[in-house]
């Protein structure tokens, strides 16, 4: 009954916990990436209508999923930080944004390079593509706003507001293909229907998505550790680090 659950909510304990966890997530990410690519290129069959071009799916879909998922996680922690004034949750939110922006860019880029050979165009302004582009601007807006404000606590609050307002965009991206006429096709994989993909294709895609997830965790933990050090550089425990007291 005496477990102190708030222990890991202190930046100092999180710093050491995250440091111990990172190697495991790196190993998981690398192994999943190798298996995912192997299945994607050597086990998954040719597609009946798109031939080999569909193999872009093994990065496109994981990148698009991560871009939305990371945004929700970022907004969640930013919101917690705003509501309960917990420092660590705001730091995690700031650490998520660059990786989220990277995956959004990748989803857009691979989408363009898939759209050109299959649809006949790099880009169209349909609801799916436009809302994903807006997601990219939301990440960029969040990061530049935080960078513009010197006081970290005020930067956290301002960022949290953009992040929370922008959450509206996530269901718009997800349901755009159902709500409106779009050039982008509907979802091949969803929670309510059986997947519309051959098993090997689906397995490769899911493993690549897991690899992207593990990779994101590594990046977010590393960045959170740096943000902690930057913000707590004048505290006693960081001074102890310098003297090499703790490992």
């Amino acid at each position: 009954m005496t477990i102190n659950w708030f222990k890991y909510a202190s930046p100092a304990s999180f710093y050491f916990l995250a440091g111990r966890m990172i190697p495991f997530f790196i190993i998981a990410a690398v192994i999943l990436l190798i298996i995912g690519l192997y299945i994607g290129f050597f086990v998954a069959p040719t597609d009946f209508q798109q031939g080999e071009a569909y193999r872009i799916i093994f990065i496109h879909v994981p990148a698009a999923w991560m871009s939305m998922f990371l945004y929700v996680v970022m907004a969640f922690w930013a919101g917690i930080g705003l509501a309960f004034n917990t420092r660590l949750s705001s730091m995690v939110a700031s650490a998520i944004a660059p990786t989220g922006a990277m995956f959004t860019f990748l989803a857009l880029w691979t989408g363009a390079w898939w759209g050109k050979p299959m649809w006949g165009t790099w880009w169209v302004w349909d609801a799916r593509l436009t809302s994903e582009l807006i997601l990219f601007f939301l990440y960029i807006g969040f990061m530049s706003l935080q960078a513009a404000i010197d006081d970290p606590r005020r930067a956290d609050k301002a960022g949290a507001i953009i992040a929370l307002v922008g959450v509206v965009n996530i269901p718009i991206i997800y349901f755009s293909v159902q709500w409106w006429n779009t050039l982008h096709q509907g979802a091949s994989v969803s929670l309510v229907q059986s997947p519309k993909m051959a098993t090997a294709m689906l397995t490769g895609m899911l493993i690549m998505a897991l690899a992207a997830w593990m990779y994101s965790i590594v990046m977010v933990l590393m960045r959170t550790r740096m943000i902690i050090l930057e913000r707590e550089r004048h505290t006693a425990w960081v001074s102890e680090l310098k003297e090499g007291v703790s490992k």
Partner: peptide, 18 residues
């Protein structure tokens, strides 16, 4: 002046399709 293809969300090998 522009014609684009809209494909569906099904992915499967040609044998399964036929």
């Amino acid at each position: 002046d522009e014609v684009l293809a809209k494909h569906d969300e099904n992915y499967m090998p040609p044998e399964a399709a036929s």
